[in-house]
């Protein structure tokens, strides 16, 4: 189980690197979308691993709220680029 989590952290490092090296804002947004999904899935895995119900609930809420926030941010940035 530990090795699965380490592999997940490695997968998480790729979009972080991408967000650091690319200057285009939409590429950064893509990296953020990837990170938001990955972090909440990792939280879910850890909650199941520890059999902790409260972390699991928070993970699901963060999963849905993070994506909603991402859509809001995408629309705001689009308005900025156009104006």
């Amino acid at each position: 189980m530990d090795s699965i989590l380490i592999a997940m952290i490695l997968a998480l490092l790729i979009p972080i690197y991408e967000a650091w090296q690319d200057d285009n804002i939409w590429q950064k947004m893509l990296a953020f979308a990837s990170i938001a999904t990955k972090t909440s899935i990792m939280m879910l895995v850890i909650s199941v691993l520890r059999d902790d119900w409260s972390i699991g609930v928070v993970a699901v809420i963060i999963l849905s709220v993070g994506e909603a926030g991402l859509m809001l941010l995408a629309h705001l940035i689009k308005q900025c680029r156009l104006g």
């Binding site: 967000a19 990170i35 938001a36 972090t39 939280m43 963060i62 993070g66 926030g69 941010l73």
Partner: peptide, 16 residues
């Protein structure tokens, strides 16, 4: 955008 990434990572850290 990077601030949002930092927020996601720190939420993960707090949760674990």
């Amino acid at each position: 955008v990077i601030r949002a990434i930092l927020g996601a990572v720190s939420a993960l850290v707090y949760a674990i």
